[in-house]
Protein backbone atom coordinates (compact mmCIF):
# COMPACT_ATOMS: atom_id res chain seq x y z
CA UNK A 1 0.00 0.00 0.00
CA UNK A 2 1.55 3.29 -1.11
CA UNK A 3 -0.47 5.54 1.14
CA UNK A 4 -2.08 4.77 4.46
CA UNK A 5 -4.77 6.55 6.40
CA UNK A 6 -2.32 8.33 8.59
CA UNK A 7 -0.74 10.07 5.63
CA UNK A 8 -4.06 11.72 4.89
CA UNK A 9 -4.17 15.43 5.69
CA UNK A 10 -5.51 16.31 9.14
CA UNK A 11 -8.70 17.80 7.74
CA UNK A 12 -9.45 14.53 5.89
CA UNK A 13 -8.83 12.42 8.99
CA UNK A 14 -11.03 14.74 11.01
CA UNK A 15 -13.70 14.54 8.33
CA UNK A 16 -13.60 10.72 8.34
CA UNK A 17 -13.93 10.60 12.13
CA UNK A 18 -16.82 13.06 11.98
CA UNK A 19 -18.83 10.41 10.20
CA UNK A 20 -17.98 7.61 12.58
CA UNK A 21 -19.89 6.48 15.64
CA UNK A 22 -18.12 6.00 18.95
CA UNK A 23 -17.81 2.25 18.67
CA UNK A 24 -16.24 2.48 15.23
CA UNK A 25 -13.78 5.02 16.59
CA UNK A 26 -12.79 2.70 19.40
CA UNK A 27 -12.40 -0.15 16.91
CA UNK A 28 -10.19 1.95 14.67
CA UNK A 29 -7.69 1.79 17.53
CA UNK A 30 -7.25 -1.89 16.72
CA UNK A 31 -6.07 -1.14 13.17
CA UNK A 32 -2.61 0.39 13.65
CA UNK A 33 -0.44 1.90 16.35
CA UNK A 34 -0.70 5.52 15.17
CA UNK A 35 -4.49 5.16 15.20
CA UNK A 36 -4.39 3.67 18.65
CA UNK A 37 -2.33 6.63 19.81
CA UNK A 38 -4.70 9.06 18.18
CA UNK A 39 -7.44 7.87 20.52
CA UNK A 40 -5.31 6.97 23.48
CA UNK A 41 -6.69 5.19 26.46
CA UNK A 42 -3.74 5.20 28.83
CA UNK A 43 -5.01 3.08 31.69
CA UNK A 44 -8.11 1.40 33.02
CA UNK A 45 -8.04 3.74 36.01
CA UNK A 46 -8.49 6.73 33.71
CA UNK A 47 -11.49 5.07 32.14
CA UNK A 48 -13.44 5.49 35.30
CA UNK A 49 -15.46 8.54 36.14
CA UNK A 50 -14.05 9.26 39.52
CA UNK A 51 -15.52 12.65 40.17
CA UNK A 52 -18.52 14.60 38.92
CA UNK A 53 -19.17 18.24 39.65
CA UNK A 54 -22.46 19.70 38.59
CA UNK A 55 -23.20 23.38 38.92
CA UNK A 56 -26.32 25.19 37.97
CA UNK A 57 -25.33 28.34 36.16
CA UNK A 58 -28.01 30.12 34.19
CA UNK A 59 -29.68 26.88 33.16
CA UNK A 60 -26.52 25.21 32.01
CA UNK A 61 -24.25 22.69 33.69
CA UNK A 62 -20.58 21.96 34.02
CA UNK A 63 -19.16 18.48 34.38
CA UNK A 64 -15.78 17.10 35.25
CA UNK A 65 -14.78 13.63 34.15
CA UNK A 66 -11.64 11.61 34.03
CA UNK A 67 -11.45 10.43 30.49
CA UNK A 68 -9.31 9.77 27.49
CA UNK A 69 -8.96 13.06 25.74
CA UNK A 70 -9.21 12.42 22.04
CA UNK A 71 -12.35 10.38 22.40
CA UNK A 72 -14.16 13.14 24.21
CA UNK A 73 -12.92 15.83 21.84
CA UNK A 74 -14.58 13.85 19.10
CA UNK A 75 -17.68 13.31 21.18
CA UNK A 76 -18.06 17.01 21.94
CA UNK A 77 -17.68 17.85 18.27
CA UNK A 78 -20.08 15.15 17.22
CA UNK A 79 -22.67 16.35 19.72
CA UNK A 80 -22.12 19.91 18.55
CA UNK A 81 -21.22 21.04 22.06
CA UNK A 82 -19.08 24.10 21.53
CA UNK A 83 -18.26 25.15 25.09
CA UNK A 84 -15.79 22.71 26.50
CA UNK A 85 -12.24 22.71 27.75
CA UNK A 86 -9.74 20.43 29.39
CA UNK A 87 -8.62 21.19 32.90
CA UNK A 88 -6.64 19.56 35.67
CA UNK A 89 -3.65 18.70 33.45
CA UNK A 90 -6.03 17.50 30.74
CA UNK A 91 -7.40 14.76 32.96
CA UNK A 92 -10.79 16.37 33.21
CA UNK A 93 -13.33 17.65 30.77
CA UNK A 94 -15.35 20.70 31.65
CA UNK A 95 -18.30 21.27 29.39
CA UNK A 96 -21.35 23.45 29.38
CA UNK A 97 -24.53 21.74 28.31
CA UNK A 98 -28.24 22.13 28.78
CA UNK A 99 -30.20 19.22 30.22
CA UNK A 100 -31.14 17.81 26.79
CA UNK A 101 -27.50 17.82 25.69
CA UNK A 102 -26.53 16.25 28.99
CA UNK A 103 -29.07 13.48 28.44
CA UNK A 104 -27.58 12.77 24.99
CA UNK A 105 -24.08 12.86 26.39
CA UNK A 106 -24.94 10.49 29.21
CA UNK A 107 -26.70 8.12 26.80
CA UNK A 108 -23.51 7.99 24.73
CA UNK A 109 -21.33 7.14 27.73
CA UNK A 110 -23.93 5.19 29.69
CA UNK A 111 -21.93 2.01 29.87
CA UNK A 112 -18.92 3.98 31.04
CA UNK A 113 -21.05 5.56 33.76
CA UNK A 114 -22.28 2.19 34.93
CA UNK A 115 -18.84 0.63 34.97
CA UNK A 116 -17.34 3.55 36.79
CA UNK A 117 -16.53 3.69 40.40
CA UNK A 118 -17.88 7.07 41.40
CA UNK A 119 -16.09 8.15 44.54
CA UNK A 120 -17.72 11.48 45.02
CA UNK A 121 -20.44 13.64 43.58
CA UNK A 122 -21.03 17.33 44.05
CA UNK A 123 -24.49 18.60 43.23
CA UNK A 124 -25.44 22.24 43.37
CA UNK A 125 -28.62 22.04 41.35
CA UNK A 126 -32.04 20.59 41.98
CA UNK A 127 -33.11 20.72 38.35
CA UNK A 128 -35.39 17.70 38.03
CA UNK A 129 -34.59 17.00 34.36
CA UNK A 130 -30.94 16.80 35.18
CA UNK A 131 -31.48 14.63 38.26
CA UNK A 132 -33.63 12.25 36.21
CA UNK A 133 -30.80 11.81 33.73
CA UNK A 134 -28.36 11.01 36.51
CA UNK A 135 -30.71 8.62 38.24
CA UNK A 136 -31.34 6.55 35.17
CA UNK A 137 -27.67 6.52 34.28
CA UNK A 138 -25.97 5.87 37.58
CA UNK A 139 -28.39 3.29 38.83
CA UNK A 140 -30.41 1.12 36.45
CA UNK A 141 -32.76 0.15 39.30
CA UNK A 142 -33.96 3.72 39.45
CA UNK A 143 -35.44 3.59 35.95
CA UNK A 144 -38.94 3.57 37.39
CA UNK A 145 -38.37 6.84 39.20
CA UNK A 146 -41.01 9.42 38.32
CA UNK A 147 -39.73 12.92 38.85
CA UNK A 148 -42.98 14.55 37.76
CA UNK A 149 -44.84 13.13 40.75
CA UNK A 150 -42.40 14.60 43.22
CA UNK A 151 -41.39 18.12 44.02
CA UNK A 152 -37.86 19.24 43.36
CA UNK A 153 -36.93 18.94 46.97
CA UNK A 154 -38.13 15.35 47.26
CA UNK A 155 -36.25 14.73 44.05
CA UNK A 156 -32.99 15.69 45.59
CA UNK A 157 -33.53 13.64 48.74
CA UNK A 158 -34.59 10.57 46.79
CA UNK A 159 -31.59 11.06 44.59
CA UNK A 160 -29.32 11.33 47.63
CA UNK A 161 -30.72 8.11 49.07
CA UNK A 162 -30.26 6.18 45.86
CA UNK A 163 -26.80 7.60 45.44
CA UNK A 164 -25.98 6.61 48.98
CA UNK A 165 -26.33 2.98 47.90
CA UNK A 166 -23.79 3.51 45.13
CA UNK A 167 -21.09 5.87 46.30
CA UNK A 168 -18.95 6.40 49.37
CA UNK A 169 -18.96 10.18 49.38
CA UNK A 170 -21.71 12.70 48.70
CA UNK A 171 -21.60 16.47 48.93
CA UNK A 172 -24.80 18.44 48.47
CA UNK A 173 -25.12 22.20 48.23
CA UNK A 174 -28.74 23.34 48.47
CA UNK A 175 -30.18 26.60 47.32
CA UNK A 176 -32.66 27.41 50.07
CA UNK A 177 -34.43 30.14 48.14
CA UNK A 178 -36.18 27.66 45.83
CA UNK A 179 -37.35 25.39 48.62
CA UNK A 180 -40.98 25.49 49.65
CA UNK A 181 -41.70 21.91 50.66
CA UNK A 182 -41.51 20.79 54.29
CA UNK A 183 -38.52 18.52 54.75
CA UNK A 184 -37.55 15.75 57.08
CA UNK A 185 -35.06 16.96 59.64
CA UNK A 186 -31.42 17.12 58.73
CA UNK A 187 -30.74 14.42 61.26
CA UNK A 188 -33.17 12.05 59.56
CA UNK A 189 -31.60 12.69 56.17
CA UNK A 190 -28.11 12.12 57.51
CA UNK A 191 -29.11 8.95 59.30
CA UNK A 192 -30.78 7.51 56.25
CA UNK A 193 -27.86 8.35 53.97
CA UNK A 194 -25.12 7.12 56.29
CA UNK A 195 -26.91 3.84 56.97
CA UNK A 196 -26.15 2.93 53.36
CA UNK A 197 -22.92 2.56 51.42
CA UNK A 198 -22.11 6.24 51.74
CA UNK A 199 -19.60 6.98 54.48
CA UNK A 200 -18.79 10.63 53.82
CA UNK A 201 -21.52 13.21 53.59
CA UNK A 202 -21.29 16.97 53.29
CA UNK A 203 -24.39 19.15 53.21
CA UNK A 204 -24.16 22.88 52.59
CA UNK A 205 -27.20 25.09 53.13
CA UNK A 206 -27.86 28.36 54.89
CA UNK A 207 -31.31 27.51 56.21
CA UNK A 208 -31.83 27.18 59.96
CA UNK A 209 -33.68 23.99 59.11
CA UNK A 210 -30.36 22.27 58.46
CA UNK A 211 -28.61 23.35 61.61
CA UNK A 212 -27.78 20.53 63.98
CA UNK A 213 -28.19 20.76 67.71
CA UNK A 214 -25.56 19.40 70.05
CA UNK A 215 -27.91 16.50 70.79
CA UNK A 216 -28.18 15.73 67.07
CA UNK A 217 -24.42 15.70 66.70
CA UNK A 218 -24.13 13.38 69.69
CA UNK A 219 -26.70 11.07 68.12
CA UNK A 220 -24.77 10.98 64.82
CA UNK A 221 -21.56 10.11 66.64
CA UNK A 222 -23.35 7.28 68.37
Amino acid sequence: MLLNFLELPQNAIKCIFDFMDYKSILRIREVAKPMKNMFSLPSTRELSISHIDIFDENHSFNYDFYFFKSYFIHMMRKMKIKEYSFVNHSHALEATMNSAEFARFVAAVKSLFQLSEIRSLTLTTDNSEFIDVLLTSLNPISNSYQANTASLRSNVIDFALQLADLVESIRFVYDESTNSEPLPSTLQIIERILSRKCKNLEIFGSSRQYRLSLADIEKIFQ
Binding site: M1, I16, F17, S24, R27, E30, V31, A32
Partner: peptide
Protein backbone atom coordinates in the same frame (compact mmCIF):
# COMPACT_ATOMS: atom_id res chain seq x y z
CA UNK B 1 -15.41 15.75 -3.11
CA UNK B 2 -13.46 15.63 0.15
CA UNK B 3 -16.63 15.18 2.20
CA UNK B 4 -18.05 12.43 -0.01
CA UNK B 5 -14.71 10.68 -0.24
CA UNK B 6 -14.27 10.73 3.54
CA UNK B 7 -17.82 9.56 4.05
CA UNK B 8 -17.18 6.66 1.67
CA UNK B 9 -14.03 5.74 3.63
CA UNK B 10 -15.81 5.95 6.98
CA UNK B 11 -18.60 3.73 5.60
CA UNK B 12 -16.06 0.98 5.07
CA UNK B 13 -15.20 1.04 8.80
CA UNK B 14 -18.76 0.65 10.05
CA UNK B 15 -19.39 -2.50 12.05
CA UNK B 16 -15.91 -3.84 11.25
CA UNK B 17 -13.31 -5.03 13.71
CA UNK B 18 -9.73 -3.75 13.56
CA UNK B 19 -8.43 -6.94 11.87
CA UNK B 20 -11.23 -6.78 9.27
CA UNK B 21 -10.36 -3.16 8.43
CA UNK B 22 -6.67 -4.07 8.22
CA UNK B 23 -7.42 -6.90 5.83
CA UNK B 24 -9.70 -4.83 3.59
CA UNK B 25 -7.34 -1.87 3.40
CA UNK B 26 -4.14 -3.94 3.27
CA UNK B 27 -2.72 -2.41 6.44
Amino acid sequence: LLTLSCKAISNTFKGKTGPQIREEWGV
